[in-house]
């Protein structure tokens, strides 16, 4: 864990923040609709954990594959990782929904939260760049 790529740590943190925020929104929606119960909370927590864990493993695999430097080996490693992770996510979701009887929608919807976070990434980056360039500009004027 100590030799984790800073990019992996940063992106996983960003995705975890978005997943947490959107999970809260989803809980609020279930509360407003009057369909909230413990299975929703459990499903949401476990679905969010699966989504963030899947993203972290993907980022770690990609980072390790890139560090290896051999394109063919990297491609093979990432292909194998993608297949195994998809099967693992499917098995975990089936276990949660089928055995632990969590709410199906509350378990499955958090899997899509990382994608929503990535959707807003360019806008946030653009805003941050604009703010930093403004700060640099004011420093130059001073």
């Amino acid at each position: 864990m100590a030799n984790l790529d800073p990019a992996v740590r940063k992106e996983t943190g960003y995705i975890a923040c978005w997943t947490g925020a959107l999970s809260l929104v989803m809980e609020a929606v279930f509360l407003i609709l009057g369909k909230w119960d413990l299975s929703v909370l459990l499903g949401n927590l476990s679905g969010a954990a699966v989504a963030v864990g899947n993203f972290f493993l993907m980022a770690r695999t990609v980072s390790l594959a890139v560090e290896g430097g051999k394109p063919d080996e990297a491609a093979r490693r990432v292909k194998a990782s993608a297949s195994i992770r998809l099967l693992a996510v499917g098995a975990l979701c089936a276990l949660l929904v089928g055995v632990l009887k969590t709410n199906v929608y509350a378990t499955l919807i958090p899997l899509l939260f990382p994608r929503i976070g990535i959707l807003f990434r360019p806008a946030i980056d653009r805003k941050r760049d604009a703010e930093s360039s403004e700060t640099e500009g004011s420093d130059l004027i001073d």
């Binding site: 594959a65 394109p71 093979r76």
Partner: peptide, 12 residues
């Protein structure tokens, strides 16, 4: 899986 593999190979 195929797409990610190709992208990582190109990135390498």
């Amino acid at each position: 899986g195929i797409g990610e593999g190709n992208a990582v190979a190109a990135a390498c």
